[in-house]
Design a protein around this nucleic acid. Sequence first.
DNA 1: TAGATTGTTAATCGATTAACAATC
DNA 2: TAGATTGTTAATCGATTAACAATC
Lengths: 220, 220
Amino acid sequence: MAKQEISPSVIRRLPRYYRFLGELSARGVVRISSKELSQQMGLTASQIRQDLNCFGGFGQQGYGYNVSALRSQIGQILGVNEARRAILIGLGNLGRAIASHVNYPDCGCELIGLFDSNPFVAGRDLNGMPIHHTETLAGFCHQEHPELAILCVPEQAAPALANQLAGLGVRAFWNFSHGDLRLNDPALLVENVHLADSLLTLTYGLGHDITGEPADNPLR
Amino acid sequence: MAKQEISPSVIRRLPRYYRFLGELSARGVVRISSKELSQQMGLTASQIRQDLNCFGGFGQQGYGYNVSALRSQIGQILGVNEARRAILIGLGNLGRAIASHVNYPDCGCELIGLFDSNPFVAGRDLNGMPIHHTETLAGFCHQEHPELAILCVPEQAAPALANQLAGLGVRAFWNFSHGDLRLNDPALLVENVHLADSLLTLTYGLGHDITGEPADNPLR
DNA sequence: TAGATTGTTAATCGATTAACAATC
DNA sequence: TAGATTGTTAATCGATTAACAATC
């Protein structure tokens, strides 16, 4: 789409911009300058202007940015208006929470199927959505063409499952199973979520008493 | 502790090293070179040597690194042998999953209390652990001195709750509520987890068809 | 017009990679 | 000893910040 390559650091900041602008918008804020926004988000004004300019001039000199226009443009770039078909596999503790708690439409996704390999779980339902047996995955994918799979299965099961799904046309994987999922095909997208890694940075911080100016504190 | 300041990028990679070394160790691998490890982790050998050297010479020229020794040294640095007292507030879908799914002892933590403000939830239990009412937080903290709080409460409730807890001695916050938690005191640690942000990077990727060499693909 | 604030270029900073001497 | 691989310095790269001219 955009020919000029966008750096990964910028892309990873977009959801956060989108979130903050959404809250400002909800609070009825019409315009904001890079300076004000930088203070609220804990970034520099320079960085905000630099980031937003990757996509073209969203602001107006002497005025700032129109909050709702900027928000919807970032939303457009992220793809929140899409409805990427997603399936979730593995309805243990975490799988059920991820299925219920995440607002899929807000993320440009649509959760169209739930799967579990346990025959005591398959056949039941979650919030009215039926849970299918993983044996029916191939048939389901041939019919419904999901492009994103959310993996909440045990670590050992994840690689084979991901490869099977890739063969069935799934192009993106949101992986919650322990252990990093690494796939060979560079066209496939993988986002490994490791909650424990995040908790460990706090454990580290508690043991090393990082104190000082906010700017000096790498973990804030 | 370490006088020489460790960069945040290195700190954030430590949990991942720890995880990979744990798996190697479990598979009985005794020694590994930075080159081999780099291939498995998708980093450069140079970076691994650079990272590990922040903490002193863990390796041995001509040999490589002893897997289990390296693992336990990184574990030591992270603080996995501690038992940081943690409480979790908010036992909705996500809170229950975070309470049950995360292996706290492996992360140097001990979950010592669960709290919810809903009187229909408080009084019940989760996996045998009683759920207290949030009104009893102050008394509990005075007695038990938790240093870490896991916030799974609604966005609006988070800031006031965090400030109350900070006043009660809590020094670190693992925040799952929507919206970033930003506290004034620079001595407090905050780790904001936004699952939706992670999903949005996949939505972005699906819309922009990032393809190319693995090394060229910023989102892998 | 004067004031504000962007868009954009240049300077700085930090993080990653390459190279190689030290040494097991 | 010869081979391997680290520890560490120097070179490169990318990301952030500062500065300021353009312009609303």
